[in-house]
Amino acid sequence: MSSYNLAAQGGGNIFLIPNATFFVELAIFLIVLGVIWRYVVPPVKRMMNERQEMIRQQIQESQQASERLAQAEARYSEALAQARVEAAKIRESARADAQQIRDELREQAEQEVARIRERGEEQLATQREQVVRELRGELGTLAVTLAERIIGDSVADEGRRAGTVDRFLDELQGMAAPDSAPQEDSAPQEDKAPQSSSAPQEDSAAEAVSVSPGRRRR
């Protein structure tokens, strides 16, 4: 139907058949193709390749960076763990030191205590010695005085008096010696000592008195 129209207006031109324009068109296209082929595609492709290369490099770098980051993190956590272990070790050794110091101090204190106690006992012993020595001096005269007063007779005989006193003191010593062996009961011992010493003293005095009648009987 349109061909009728065309026929009426264009004078039988069949437009599906190319005419000489074909060659002009072909030439123009070849020019375009040549220009694009030679001057446009290569530089753009080169740029594309460069950019791809760049992107590849960047990806690589970022991978490397993340690897390094992971390594650093690993190192950090390792160092942290090490530090924790070390801290624990230090704490442990500090505790051990403290224990040692405490032990040492306790030992020292105990030694001190022991030493002080020893010295106190020594002192005590010396004092007792002294007391005994004093007693030794005084007791004789006291006993003699007492005996003289009781028997009304002078026991001035030096030999007998000394014998009596020595015997008495030996007895006294014999009583005190077993008591002094346990050192802890020094205070009760001191309490006991005068008692025990006073009892034999009276006994010996009584003995001395009882002896005296015998001698008086004679």
Partner: peptide, 11 residues
């Protein structure tokens, strides 16, 4: 125009 398209296609 068929002239251009034929030119391209035949080429």
């Amino acid at each position: 125009d068929v002239n251009l398209t034929f030119a391209l296609a035949f080429f």
